[in-house]
Structures are given as C-alpha cells and as structure tokens.
Write a protein that binds this DNA or RNA. Structure first.
Lengths: 159, 159
DNA sequence: ATCCTTATTGTGAGAAATTCAGAATATTGA
DNA sequence: TCAATATTCTGAATTTCTCACAATAAGGAT
C-alpha cells in the first residue's frame, strides 16, 4: 500500500494511522482491507455490510463481500466496531463503541439514528427481577417515525 | 376437525375455544393450523418458527414450515403473538403481548427470559433528545449470563 | 345438511444475509 | 530479504424467511 500525501486527504491519513495503531495494539496486523473497512464504517455510520463493501471497493475494487463480512466480524469482536441488528433488515455497523448509546429506527423508511442513554444512570440495567441472570448490558431499540416520514404520513393510516 | 371431549384434554379444549373467539373477533377464520400454532407458542414461549412447526406437527403431521411462517406473521400483525429477534439467531415467538415486557438472553447458551419493565414508568421512552423522531415504543434487550452458564463459566474467560 | 365464496394453507422455487473450508496472498518480525 | 503465519479470496453451502400460484377448507346462505 503506497501512502502518498498528495493523493490521500490528510484527515484520512491521520485516521488511517490511528486505526493502524489501534489494530496493532490489539494484536492485529494492519491491512489495507481492515483500514478501508474501518474508514468506510466511520464515514457512514449505520451502514450494512453490503454498503460498506461498496464503499471499500472505491479504494480496493477487488475486495470480496465475504472478506468484508470476516473483517467486520473480527472488528466487532475487538470492539472497534459495533454491530446493530434492526428488525427485518440486515445488520448495520458503526465505529462509535464504548459509550452505551442506543438506536431509533423509523418503522417506515428504516432510517436509523443514534440515541444517547435516556437518563444519566442507565435505568435499563436495573430490571425488577432478573431470574438469576447476571446482566452485562442492555440495548434499547426505539421504534419511531422519522420527521421526513411524519410529514409524508397520511393521517388515515394506523401505524 | 372433530372435537371429542374424550380425546382432547379439557384445558386445551378451553384454550382452543378462547383462541377461537379471539381469532373470530379479529375477523379471522378459526383453523386448526392457527389454533395449533397458538397453542404451541403458548406452551413454550420463546420458540423459533421451526420449533413451533415441530410442535404443531405432533397434531398436524403434514403442516409445512412455510405455513407456520405465514400463520405466525399474520398472528404477529394481529398482536396475538409477539416476535422477538435476538442477535444472531432466528426469531422467537410468544403469546404474551400487550404488556411491554422485555427480554434477557444468555450470550453463551442463547436462553431467553422475560423481564418486566425496569421501573414503573417506562424510562426508556424518554431519551435525552430524539432528532425529530416521533417515538412509538422501545424494546430493551438485556445481554447476560444465565445461572446455568454462570456456574459452568471458567473464570479465565473474559466475557 | 349442502353448497358456494373466499380466506387460508400447501407446494415448490427462490431471495437475502451470512458462514465455512481450503487455497492463495500479504504483513511483520527476524 | 525471508520465513512464519495471519489474513484474505474463492466458491459453495446454509439458514431463515418470502413469494406466486394451485389446492383446500371454514363459515354463511340456501
């Protein structure tokens, strides 16, 4: 992989270095595929594996979709990307990890937005009784209607 | 469908009648397939479509899996069953609807438990900011480790 | 009780998303 | 630069679920 300052936008170069450092510190080799997947995911949060593959192909035209899947699965395990599975649609990926933010998706158009945790203290982690399950984390998925779909919504239709 | 008191356990007969009434009031015909699917789902909450099909086949040996899918999709729309999609596994169905209860699944064995809403007032429906999305409902999914897997867990492994 | 209308189910194929095994390739430490 | 082995590629396969159309059966009317 050649890194030319003249052909690569500087902010991407920096990002590339950062991702590379993170990968190395996690015991992973720094490959152009991983960097491209990370950058594509970073650039467009809530992208599907297919969309990420399409993005990546602008840099690496011959990358296979399967490789993107493998890379994403590995990065997800490393916690460099987070996988979100909205109902009835392919999994989406984002680079925002570590904060336990949640997601709202539009039941009409499928649009997904990030939603920060409701109250300061994660309220969803203290259910009334836990059946002996040791809880690790909670993910909240909001069903909603995005502003675009609200304006376009005919009042007759019951959602 | 013949209904013989001597061959059908009375509690199932009653349940059958109840489901029948509900279906009728929702403008649906009362078919043995629908009743069998409802009873199977009721008997074993958090079953997958395949598991429900297997259960149903004990009564209706020749029902196709596709029909079970169609019936479940329709019953879900009617709100007689609720569909839950845990990450990385097939959708699960249950007859407990209307209360907005949540789910905890074991990250190791996949076991799913019901969890009643954390605090009295649905806290998860008031996110800090909603990006203009009109929120309709929230579903909380708890990741956890069930008691069986806790005992069997080697302390070395980082979960 | 029987027939007819039409909802429901069955059949068979097929789509979409994802995973797997083994061969080829590329990164990194020496 | 080279070797070791992590990573990616190739191609097929799997799983879950959907679709179109034919066959069947539920429930009201006669």
């Amino acid at each position: 992989m050649q890194r030319s300052v003249t052909t690569t936008p500087s902010h991407e170069l920096v990002a590339s270095e950062e991702w590379g450092a993170r990968l190395r510190s996690l015991g992973r080799r720094v490959t152009k595929q991983r960097l491209a997947v990370l950058q594509a995911t970073d650039r467009r949060p809530h992208s599907s594996a297919d969309e990420i593959a399409a993005q990546v192909r602008e840099q690496l035209p011959s990358i296979s979709t399967q490789s993107v899947y493998v890379v994403l699965a590995d990065l997800t395990n490393l916690d460099l990307v987070r996988k979100f599975e909205p109902p009835a649609s392919p999994a989406l990926y984002e680079t925002r990890t570590g904060d336990n933010h949640h997601h709202a998706y539009c039941v009409r158009c499928g649009r997904v937005d990030d939603v920060d945790c409701a109250v300061g203290h994660a309220p969803c982690l203290t259910p009334s009784h836990d059946h002996g399950m040791q809880l690790l984390s909670a993910e909240v998925v909001y069903r909603g209607l995005c502003s675009a779909c609200q304006s376009r919504a005919d009042p007759e239709s019951r959602l």
